[in-house]
Each structure stands twice: as C-alpha cells, then as structure tokens.
C-alpha cells in the first residue's frame, strides 16, 4: 500500500513538472509581455516613398490608436499578410495610424524597397536598421503586430501572420 502511494506521488510530481514545462513555455513565448504598458515612443526614418505625406521621420502619435507591424524582406508570412494590412489601412486610416517597421533586415535595403514595391503598401513604413526598436518592443520574430491604444498602452500583440478577422477584432476594440 505504501509502495503504491509512493509510486502515485512520484508519478504525480513528474507529471506536474511535465505539464508545467509545456504550458509555461507556451505561455511565455508571446505571452502577456508589455500588455497594458505604455509602449516606448520612437523616431525612425521613413522610407523615401512615404516622406512626402508623412515626413522624414515618424513617431507614435498622441491621442490616436496605432497598429505597428514589424516585417522583414526575407519573411514569407510578412509578404502574405501585406494585403490584409493594406486593406485594413484603407478602411480605418481616418481613425487608426498604421506603421510598418522594417527590422532584422540589415544590409537588405534594396530587398526592403522591393518588398514595398511588390506589396503596394500605402501606409508609412520606417526603418529599424539597428533592431533597437525591435528590442524595445520585445520582438520575438517577424511578422509581429502591436495594437496600441490612444493613451499609448499596449492592447494586444500578435505573433505570426494576422488574418482579416483577427485584425478587425483588434481594430474594433481599439476604437471603442
């Protein structure tokens, strides 16, 4: 009887550790990091094609919700989600500012330009050549999209390619 109890306790302990290992790593991957916090402001150079409309550098606006989307020219899912972002920008541009951030792409300036040419994105895109903005935002990879409220706090961060439904749901929440 005692032996059975010991086996049960040890098995439960090991199973608990196993469960913790799996669930904790899933939760931490792109977890609640920075949610609700005021996101760091930035001033980054704008790609030449957007400068006439948005100026040479761009920062987080005050009093307006922002969608910040990190991308890189070598990133397939970034290409795939570009039309989704562009469609949402065209629909919400009066209420929400979209900012694309080219990051983790040092030495690929030409490819980054080609990405913008190919995708036909009309919302402003800035350069994060030294990856500092990526570090400040705790970026894990690309694409990753941040939804920032009017007061500058982070509402949600989405890792990986975003769908129209996910984007719309977050945008509606941003506008409430």
């Amino acid at each position: 009887m005692t032996r059975l109890l010991i086996v049960v306790v040890v098995t439960a302990l090991l199973a608990g550790l196993f469960w913790f290992g799996i669930t904790a790593s899933q939760g931490r991957a792109i977890g609640p990091t920075q949610l609700g916090r005021v996101m760091p402001d930035f001033s980054r150079p704008v790609f030449a094609r957007y400068q006439a409309e948005f100026g040479e550098t761009l920062s987080l606006p005050t009093g307006k919700p922002v969608v910040v989307s990190f991308w890189a020219s070598w990133c397939g899912p970034c290409h795939a989600q570009a039309p989704t972002l562009e469609a949402a920008w065209r629909r919400y541009r009066d209420q929400v500012l979209f900012i694309g951030v080219n990051t983790q792409d040092r030495g690929n300036e030409r490819q980054a330009e080609a990405f913008l040419n190919q995708s036909g994105i009309t919302f402003p895109n800035v350069k994060d050549l030294d990856n500092r903005l990526g570090v400040d935002y705790g970026l894990f990879g690309v694409p990753e999209t941040f939804f920032i409220r009017r007061d500058g706090t982070l509402q949600h961060r989405h890792a990986g390619p975003i769908t129209t439904a996910q984007l719309s749901a977050q945008l509606e929440e941003l506008l409430q």
Binding site: F20, R28, G31, Q34, V135, D136, Y137, G138, F140
Partner: peptide, 16 residues
C-alpha cells in the same frame, strides 16, 4: 521588462 521572464535562462526565484 521587454521580453518577459522567457528571456532569462535562469527562471526567477519566485511564484510558480
């Protein structure tokens, strides 16, 4: 602060 506890290879000595 930026990446959460995930970034630390030694987990913090608190909570879970």
């Amino acid at each position: 602060e930026r990446y959460g506890d995930w970034v630390l290879l030694d987990p913090p000595r608190r909570g879970i």
